[in-house]
């Protein structure tokens, strides 16, 4: 079974935000929620780089460790998902996530208690694959359809790669051999220490 991973090549990202738009459209994400975002560092200055950031589906995911109601689970493909039935919107996972992935809709009586929403690697949630209930709560389950996340599929420069971690890292390795290390694959080492499974 492949271990799914994201990789963002900061040398290639052109800050077009197609990944953000693709994600919102494919999963019908409500206004105010961005499962994926593009962050630019040194904007307008020498060394400017952009990176596309969302849940990295970490090997040893800190969100899973800190959740007081154990609403997270990891699929056998390594994708970190959660149950919105169990989530109590406490916000602990945001406080623990290095990538700022968890998002909370501002619809509660006291804003911070909406159910958490985050990137699912286009793999839905605990409901039946491709059911209406799954789509309503978590968005599209492209993995169950044999497809990869649309954010990476839409990336025009292939800065954002998604798929089997071994394949993704091999593509990146070939780029490094050809061009040099550059600014690196931001977050890869943090999300998958030691190339973890």
């Amino acid at each position: 079974m492949a271990r799914m991973k994201f990789l963002c090549d900061a040398e290639r990202c052109i800050e077009c935000n197609a990944c953000v738009t693709a994600c919102k459209n494919e999963n019908e994400i409500p206004w105010g929620i961005n499962r994926r975002r593009v962050v630019t560092i040194n904007d307008g200055a020498e060394g400017e780089r952009s990176i596309s950031v969302a849940c990295m589906h970490c090997s040893d995911a800190p969100c899973m460790a800190v959740c007081p109601v154990d609403c997270f689970y990891q699929t056998d493909e390594g994708v970190v998902l959660h149950s919105k039935d169990l989530c109590i919107g406490c916000g602990y996972c945001f406080y623990a996530c290095p990538f700022g992935a968890p998002q909370y809709p501002q619809v509660g009586n006291f804003g911070s208690r909406g159910k958490m929403d985050k990137c699912t690697f286009c793999a839905g949630g605990p409901e039946d694959d491709n059911s209406e209930a799954e789509f309503q709560k978590y968005g599209r389950n492209r993995l169950a359809e044999g497809k990869l996340p649309l954010c990476a599929e839409m990336c025009s420069t292939k800065a954002l790669l998604a798929g089997d971690g071994d394949v993704v890292s091999e593509i990146y390795r070939e780029r490094i051999v050809s061009r040099g290390f550059g600014s690196g694959a931001w977050g890869w080492g943090k999300a998958y220490p030691g190339g973890g499974s």
């Binding site: 109590i88 619809v107 509660g108 208690r113 159910k115």
Partner: peptide, 14 residues
């Protein structure tokens, strides 16, 4: 409808 609609201003989360 949710507590935010039926009991707006209460402590109950969505």
């Amino acid at each position: 409808d949710g507590p935010d609609v039926v009991t707006p201003g209460s402590k109950m989360p969505v």
